[in-house]
Amino acid sequence: MRNKPKLSSVFLNGIITENPTFRLVLGICPTIAVTSGLINAIGMGAAATFVLVGSNFVISLLRNVIPDKVRIPCFIVVICTFVTLVQMLLQAFIPSLYASLGMFIPLIVVNCIILARAEAFASKNGPVASAVDGLGMGIGFTLAISIIAIVRELLGTGCIAGIPIFGAGYDPMLITILAPGGFMVFGLTLGVANIIMKRSENKKAKEAK
């Protein structure tokens, strides 16, 4: 990637072609843990996006200074800084979200999407492209976990973002908001995403011919 990548394609890359959840299958722990409700999923997505943009930007600036052998600890230090920032900001301004995400905010540090982007993109590209990559990846992650959260919350409580959709007659299917249901819904949405991607790839291949 010596020649400068186009910013728009870097941005779209994270949302569709290399969607962290559906294409790279990274960051599955928060994906299962916080997708029992849409609000939580969007909160987690926003927090992770903030950390991704910040850490990608800073790591890209430092990429020529960091010695290769100790790059992982260096990346982690940068990521930790931004996670701590997010945690303090949430605690100060959105305490309800802070309370419901709980342990999963500090765990953003070990979200492998962030480390993977630092390693695969930010350490090889300029700061602006890296920030855009972080933004694209973050939005892709947020969209993916929001889709899973909508399915799980709708089936498991009959609501979306706490707003009743199915009415009082619906008897919620509890298992979808429990851990096993999380794995099932994730697997099924992953399968659907794979089918859609395969179809569009086939279409492109046909057009190219």
Partner: peptide, 10 residues
């Protein structure tokens, strides 16, 4: 098992 986890009362 799934039904039992989903609708434990019923």
């Amino acid at each position: 098992g799934v039904l039992l986890a989903s609708w434990p009362v019923k």
